[in-house]
Design a protein around this nucleic acid. Sequence first.
DNA 1: GACCCGTGGGA
DNA 2: TTCCCAAGGGT
Length: 352
Amino acid sequence: MTTRPDSAALLAWYDRHHRRLPWRIGPADRAAGAKPDPYRIWLSEVMLQQTTVTAVKPYFEAFLARWPRVCDLAAADEAEVMKAWAGLGYYSRARNLKACADAVAERHGGRFPDTEAALLALPGIGAYTAAAIAAIAFDRPATVVDGNVERVVSRLFTVEEPLPDAKPALKRLAATLTPQRRAGDFAQAMMDLGATLCTPRKPACPLCPWSEACRGRAAGAPETYPRRRAKAERPTRRGIAYVAMRSDGAVLLRRRPPKGLLGGMSEVPSTDWTPAAPAESPPLPGPWAAAGRIEHTFTHFHLILEVRLARRPAGDPAPDGFWWSTAADLAGEALPSVMRKVVGAAQKAFGS
DNA sequence: GACCCGTGGGA
DNA sequence: TTCCCAAGGGT
């Protein structure tokens, strides 16, 4: 026998146990009249897409310090935004972030729209983010559904249909819980609940404000929800990366194509990444020496790169489409993590 | 709907 | 080590 989950009970829990986050206006501050800044809510929500709070915090602080308002971001160079995003992953988010800032500045007079439909029309804002901004920044009664909410709701109601097929049903169930007032706090409460108590493994049910209402707990196996379809295995691809390094430590870089994998980011030249081991095909004159190998796992494949090193004299000119990045500049380049591993392996071989 | 798109931490 | 997966969006 279970009772129905009560939004008031969750809000009361949130008032006592909510996390303090740099982009969040706490319930006490809000009650005292503090208003959330839509720019900060938007920036944090985009950064938090498929990304942990721990990873986001330093990037959020850096972006806010450098571009305090949406108009500052609209005035920035896209290349600078890409550099500042390097390491956070899913780089189309950075391109869309810039495009969204441009659209808000040009089409909306520098103010974010306050409805789900208008937000949804902006680049990089999908169903989740539109609802989150509408609820958190503008206190609209939008139903916010992310991975946490899907987990909480699937456990509350023992939803047997597997993800992703269950998404519409989970959203309908979540909508039945969303209150007309304090919808923003309610959304954040659901996410805090999922992040701190209703966790993927070993949920802390005795501490949960909804433990009496939870069918998953009553059934004895809440951690088995949500159900998921079996996922395909991750294939391995192989390639060879060529690092030209000058005697002063500068490295030859180029820009990747604007879209697709690591779109718009910088890279060391390499062969194609293919299932079979590729043949040597240096894009530049050698001689090339072995400099170890690195491995990196992307969302949908695992990559093994053999690293080659060529030593170049100081003053060596950069070929068309390339530039020399000095040892001092490397840290600030728009290099994705996999390329930082490649450069690191070359630097190790260079010193030995 | 299926597929593509990063990264790092925890178990 | 290996696997999971975190405040998803675009095409």
